[in-house]
C-alpha cells in the first residue's frame, strides 16, 4: 500500500504544479511507482507541464461519474517506462462535480497500485482544497520567500495540523532568488522555517530553466546542469528517507584570498 501526498500552498502561482511534476518524475526515475492526480478541476495544467496533454482521453470527472473505469483514465508517461502515471483534471466540468467520497475512492484505489500518489491541489482553501487534503496521508506545503505566500502557507499549515494527518506537513521553499538572498532583500530561509515551524524538505532556486522546461513539456529535473533540478532530485531522495544536507546556498562564488586583496571590486 502506497501513501498519498498532497502538494498545496494556499496562494496561487507559487509552483505547486511544477513541484508535483518534478518530484513525481524523480521518484519514478528512482524506480518507484508514482501516480499524479490533478485536482485543479477546470484549470488543468499538470498534463501540459509534463507534455502529456495530447494523451489525455478521459479525466478524473469521467471516473468519478462512472463513465470509465479508473485504469482507462490513467495516462502513462512514456519516458518513465511503467512508473509514472497521471490522472488528469477535467477542463470542462466545474469543481463542484467532485465530492469527497469519489475522490477518496479514487485515491484509495490508486494507493493500492502505486507507491506514491501525488495530488496537485488547487489554490485557495475552499472546496477543491478540502477534497484534496482530506484524502491525503501527508502534505507538502510550497511557499515562496515573500510575505503573502508565507502568510497563506501559515494558514494552510494550521488547517492541515488540525486534520491530524499520519505524516506531518513538510515545507518546500520555491522560487528563491539567489541574488536577492545575497543582497538581503528577500525573506531569509531561516526566518521562514522558524516562522512556520514545520520540517523543511528542500529549497528550490528560481531559474529560467524551470519555465523553459515546462514550456517544452519537460521537467527541469531532466536537465543535469540545472540547480533547481538538482534541488528537486534532493527533495525526492529525502522523501525516500535519505538524509541529504540542505544546500542552503551561501555560494557567493568563493573568492580567493589574493583576488580579494588584489582583485577588482565588483
Amino acid at each position: 500500500m502506497g501513501i498519498s501526498i498532497v502538494v498545496t500552498s494556499g496562494k496561487g502561482g507559487v509552483g505547486k504544479t511544477t513541484t508535483t511534476a518534478n518530484i513525481s518524475s524523480v521518484l519514478a526515475s528512482l524506480g518507484k511507482k508514482v501516480c499524479m492526480v490533478d485536482l485543479d478541476i477546470g484549470l488543468r495544467n499538470l498534463d501540459a507541464v509534463l507534455g502529456l496533454t495530447n494523451r489525455v482521453v478521459y479525466d478524473i470527472v469521467d471516473v468519478a461519474q462512472n463513465r470509465v473505469v479508473l485504469s482507462q483514465a490513467l495516462v502513462r508517461d512514456p519516458r518513465f517506462e511503467d512508473n509514472l502515471y497521471l490522472l488528469a483534471a477535467s477542463q470542462f466540468a466545474d469543481k463542484y462535480v467532485l465530492d469527497q467520497d469519489s475522490v477518496r475512492r479514487i485515491v484509495t484505489y490508486l494507493k493500492q497500485r502505486f507507491d506514491f500518489v501525488i495530488i496537485d491541489c488547487p489554490a485557495g482553501i475552499e472546496y477543491g482544497f478540502q477534497n484534496a487534503v482530506t484524502v491525503a496521508d501527508g502534505a507538502i506545503v510550497v511557499t515562496n520567500p515573500e510575505l503573502a505566500s508565507v502568510s497563506d502557507a501559515d494558514r494552510v499549515v494550521g488547517i492541515l495540523e488540525s486534520m491530524k494527518m499520519p505524516i506531518t506537513p513538510h515545507l518546500i521553499i520555491n522560487r528563491v532568488r539567489k541574488n536577492m538572498i545575497n543582497e538581503g532583500t528577500s525573506m531569509r530561509i531561516d526566518d521562514i522555517v522558524n516562522h512556520l515551524r514545520i520540517p523543511l524538505l528542500g529549497v528550490v532556486v528560481d531559474e529560467d530553466e524551470v519555465i523553459a522546461a515546462s514550456n517544452s513539456g519537460k521537467t527541469v529535473v531532466s536537465d543535469k546542469n540545472s540547480d533547481a533540478g538538482h534541488s528537486y532530485r534532493n527533495i525526492a531522495h529525502r522523501m525516500l528517507g535519505e538524509s541529504i544536507p540542505l544546500d542552503i546556498f551561501n555560494d557567493t562564488k568563493k573568492v580567493g584570498f589574493f583576488s580579494r586583496v588584489f582583485g577588482r571590486k565588483k
Binding site: S151, D152, D154, R155, G158, I159, E161, R197
Partner: peptide, 9 residues
C-alpha cells in the same frame, strides 16, 4: 496555553 496559533486560527 502553549503551542502555535497560526494565521486564521
Amino acid at each position: 496555553e502553549t503551542g502555535i496559533v497560526r494565521s486564521g486560527q
